[in-house]
């Protein structure tokens, strides 16, 4: 019998169902129904964004062909796994150091599933060391499921996805050590990274491994760009799962996101023109809530 993909789900479900009851006991009676006016501008953006994205998802469901530009870093994923397979070496996947309440970590897990499926198909060893315990639990189930999908559940064991430590630099030391001692042929550094980004990427670079990085942390991007072969910059990381899966519905959401980006760009240009030539303080006051 197949196990549930999230054994912790039952605990989470009980907690989630208890939450409203606990909240009722803690609630203050002074506040009533209403809009948070300080977040009104964000609400408009949220409605426009959701509307456009859902429209494009609907269009994609209807069979419309949507063009998404080529992302070199994602095209190189299979090349990196292929190289590891040829060399008979392992693939190292680092899902960042943050927990699963960070969207980058969720995006990383989606890429991990794709990588794990391919390594399972080729019979290439994979290792996923973790810093955060929740990310570890989720990554373990993601990889286990990917191995099952690839028809190779026999290849999965407790060492594939392992827990290292909760300390940032102890984790960095452990992963750098693995890179230097075991010399994986491909290193994936995808997720949320901070001060350890350069330490990990340089250690990997020194071993000659092909490195694919992806993060939305702007301060860490220069480190990855200088030390990795391919870097997924910001939004490319979030688009990765849609791009790799090639599911039309997912691609529709990416297209919708691009349209909203264009709308925002026009909005910014319009704002610049208004502030420069008219100096409309009323508009500024509305856009920047106090």
């Amino acid at each position: 019998m197949r196990k549930h993909p999230f054994p912790e789900v039952s605990v989470a479900a009980v907690l989630l169902l208890l939450a409203p009851g606990y909240a009722l006991a803690q609630a203050s009676e002074e506040i009533t129904w209403g809009l948070r006016m300080e977040n009104f501008a964000a609400l408009i953006l949220f409605v426009v964004f959701s509307g456009v994205v859902m429209t494009f998802i609907r269009l994609a469901r209807g069979g419309r062909d949507l063009y998404i530009r080529r992302i070199a870093g994602l095209n190189a994923v299979e090349e990196a796994i292929g190289r590891a397979t040829e060399l008979g070496k392992k693939v190292l996947y680092v899902p960042g150091i943050m927990s699963i309440d960070e969207v980058q970590t969720l995006a990383s897990l989606a890429v991990l599933k794709h990588v794990a499926k391919h390594t399972a198909q080729y019979g290439t060893p994979l290792e996923v060391p973790n810093k955060d315990p929740l990310t570890y639990a989720a990554a373990r189930e993601t990889v286990k499921e990917a191995y099952l999908e690839a028809g190779r559940p026999d290849l999965f064991n407790e060492e594939v996805v392992n827990y290292v430590t909760y300390d940032q630099f102890a984790y960095t030391a452990a992963v750098s050590g693995k890179m230097v001692r075991e010399k994986p042929a491909a290193n994936f550094l995808v997720g949320s990274f901070y001060a350890e980004s350069l330490l990990l990427a340089e250690a990997g670079q020194s071993t000659g491994a092909i490195q694919i990085a992806g993060t939305a942390e702007v301060a860490q991007l220069p480190f990855f760009v200088t030390t990795c072969d391919y870097t997924l910059i910001g939004e490319e990381l979030y688009a990765a799962s849609a791009y790799l899966s090639r599911e039309p519905v997912m691609l529709g959401s990416i297209k919708g996101q691009d349209i909203v980006k264009f709308i925002l760009l026009c909005w910014i240009v319009l704002g610049i023109l208004i502030f420069t030539f008219i100096g409309n303080t009323a508009m500024r006051d509305w856009l920047l809530p106090h």
Binding site: Q104, T142, S253
Partner: peptide, 25 residues
């Protein structure tokens, strides 16, 4: 930052709508 923020929002929307489910395995 703007691109990443929109990407995160789009990804979150996919999760909320149940379109993105690979993170659950």
């Amino acid at each position: 930052i703007i691109g990443a923020a929109l990407g995160a929002a789009s990804f979150s929307l996919r999760i909320l709508l149940g379109i993105e489910r690979s993170y659950l395995g």
